[in-house]
Write a protein that binds this DNA or RNA. Structure first.
Length: 121
DNA sequence: ATATTGACCCGGA
DNA sequence: CTCCGGGCCAATA
């Protein structure tokens, strides 16, 4: 007789995503798609967004997750937007016009292949 | 059961 | 820069 139905698929994926989000160090950012990839779920940026929208997991650095173009995922006039900007700035991230400057949320293929030594400049 | 909704992504026009 | 269209898929209606 089947005991525990293991861990449901969604729950396992959820765990993976949360892990990937926690892995983003302070002062750095990552795109939803980027997180999905790191979690072993390529092409599933939406799943990442949905999981974060749940709002559980205390202490999760959700504010380090942005859109691939470096923009905050909330409407500019929303409270959540303001909070995310504030949290990012508190970590030394430069945010201008609802967009993070100074680093890339989703590195382009070119960047990854060329990866200029010494970093972009 | 089908339909709509998202803290999304990406290439092309 | 914007707009468009396809891909993605769990949750909600």
């Amino acid at each position: 007789m089947p005991a525990k139905p293991k861990e449901s698929r969604v729950q396992e994926q959820r765990r993976q995503v949360l892990e990937a989000v926690r892995a983003v160090p302070p002062g750095q950012v990552a795109g939803y798609g980027e997180i999905a990839r790191r979690a072993g779920l390529p092409g599933r940026a939406r799943l990442v967004a949905r999981i974060l929208s749940a709002g559980d997991e205390p202490g999760l650095p959700w504010h380090r997750v942005l859109r691939s173009d470096g923009r905050i995922a909330f409407p500019p006039d929303s409270p959540a937007f303001a909070e995310q900007v504030q949290r990012l700035r508190a970590e030394g991230v430069r945010v201008e016009g609802g967009r993070v400057r100074g680093q890339r949320a989703a590195p382009s293929l070119d960047e990854m292949l060329w990866s200029p030594p010494g970093g972009p400049r």
